[in-house]
Design a protein around this nucleic acid. Structure first.
Lengths: 312, 312
DNA sequence: GAGACATCACAACTATCGGTTGTGTCGTTA
DNA sequence: TAACGACACAACCGATAGTTGTGATGTCTC
């Protein structure tokens, strides 16, 4: 056996917690000798001693102490792996557009509100892949902004407007608007808005195109997309560059950057994320998620908001 | 067998990657029949089909597709667990004071610079526990600010000043100093500095006591410490409250908080983190880490800095 | 459409493994 | 010093997981 025996790891953790092989044996419903054998086997496989055997039980060695958290990790990973396919009540497979973006934050909220629901977060390449995965049953739900002109959902795939995310302006400290608490979209006319990550043809591109058209803005998508960090670097050092970012997007930037999030008001542009699922999907947790996001529950409450005309 | 067989998981991943049981068998140096058996056993244990067998090989089912990333996670966790105790060249065990604080950031830098060095990050309760763990060999190194009056390191435990972290002021947007790029410590006289996390008797408490004494400041430590979030909440809403924070500390706050980091200058207070290790520890990676942090390499470069008198 | 060729599955066999029961060794405790 | 409690070792035995040999089934080529 090349690898590690998970039953031995489980036994090791039980023995470490109990402090005595006998108690671990009782807990696992095996004999003390079996525990001894399993631990000895694990020690042999790892090449280190994990316990020092005393007349009062078994104490962890230094290596055992170091191994213990990894052993727990391993068992947790096993639990998640099994849960991901457990027949009947497997984890709910939900696709999000990115783990740092608004939909992921809402999914975390849902997890906090319903910790009993196991969730398997995946990230597919684009909305087409997500819709296809829902149709085929690969995933149970997807957070996507699928409301764009020309898109028609396949039969059986349903969608609700799940939550609206306010769009904010992100600037460096030297930007002319950096000190403002809020600005109107109209005030951005003539400013340089840079969004190098936008891919033409996607929903977000369609959204920001519509936003730009509605208020006479110009959004630059020039230059290769190297991810968030170079963009944030550029913003931090520029007095004229800004970008749009969802208010629930988690950005992390170096401490010396001092970027500013500036709200947009009168009207407040909101980005409508939808929840997609298949009508025939019987997964019980799907109902819980839909109810949590129920229509209107997460609609944005600002007095005056803006969305593209095609969003119902 | 209650749990999952890691060899079966390994075989599953190999088969999924190869697309054919035969190739996976060749890679694992077993027969095709053994692969078939292992996969069948895993499928039986999980209660789901993972592959659809075709004449051209084996394709993942929906469940197999969902299980695959978890299977990889599981194998990665196994690798880390084994590495944590691998005799001779196990992972370097390093204690940091917290995973979001400056030392953890420096450790990430080190990991980027030396990706070949495996690191096992642990977090012990306090500096005494860290020193004890180094003395006994439980851990190989620790980032702590142990330079405080009255502390004497046990024989064999060595320390170098590893890196200096600049102290910044953190305020909400309504604070009277919020618009400043930098302030001097003297300008903070009379302002409310709140640090509910400080524990009397610790190094950081001694440091901030000394800082307050040196510049005539008052630091409040009243109120229970509920962690970072309530503190950040309080800062965001207050026009007079501020706190100190290391410039490499990663803070995450809600998007509507808009907190400001304000540099301190003339002089710039720096917090000296030390690296501790045991002179008898032969771990080769320890030398690499020490060389990376070598004396002076991470000393702060600002013209005028301040540290407590007891720091060499 | 038939045969060659690929795939994976099933069957029989066997060595090893992992559990049990019974016993031994060793340190602690009364 | 004897009783007790801890874990280890030994013998045994059924289950397991590998091997080789063969079968079933689908695909590709002519």
């Amino acid at each position: 056996m090349l690898g590690v025996d998970l039953d031995a790891v489980r036994t090791f953790v039980a023995a470490a917690d109990a402090g005595r092989f006998q108690d671990a044996a009782a807990e696992l419903s095996i004999t003390q000798q079996a525990v001894s054998k399993r631990v000895a086997g694990l020690e042999k496989a790892l090449g280190v001693r994990l316990f020092t055997r005393t007349a009062r039980g078994a104490e962890l060695t230094i290596d055992g102490l170091a191994f213990l958290p990894h052993a727990r990790d391993l068992l947790r990973a096993e639990g998640r792996a099994v849960a991901s396919v457990r027949p009947g009540r497997r984890a709910l497979r939900v696709d999000v557009i990115g783990r740092r973006l608004g939909p992921a934050a809402v999914l975390r909220d849902f997890h906090r509100a319903h910790p009993e629901v196991e969730i398997d977060v995946v990230t597919l390449v684009d909305a087409d892949a997500a819709v296809d995965a829902i149709r085929s049953g690969t995933i149970d739900a997807s957070f996507r902004a699928v409301t764009m002109p020309g898109r028609r959902l396949p039969d059986g795939v349903a969608a609700i407007r799940a939550f609206d995310e306010a769009v904010q302006l992100l600037t460096g400290p030297a930007h002319t608007l950096a000190a403002a608490r809020a600005v109107t979209p109209a005030e951005l006319v003539g400013h340089r808005i840079w969004m190098p990550g936008l891919v033409p043809g996607t929903e977000s591109a369609a959204y920001y195109d519509a936003l730009a058209a509605a208020f006479g803005l110009t959004i630059e998508i020039t230059g290769p997309d190297f991810g968030a960090e170079p963009l944030l670097d550029a913003l931090a050092g520029s007095g004229s560059l800004a970008t749009f970012v969802g208010d629930r997007t988690r950005l992390v930037w170096p401490a010396d950057h001092d970027l500013r999030r500036i709200a947009l008001r009168d009207p407040e542009p909101v980005y409508a994320h939808s929840l997609l699922w298949h009508r025939d999907n019987p997964h019980p947790a799907l109902t819980v998620l839909r109810d949590h996001l129920g229509p209107g529950r997460f609609a944005h409450s600002a007095a005056e908001t803006w969305t593209p005309a095609w969003v119902q």
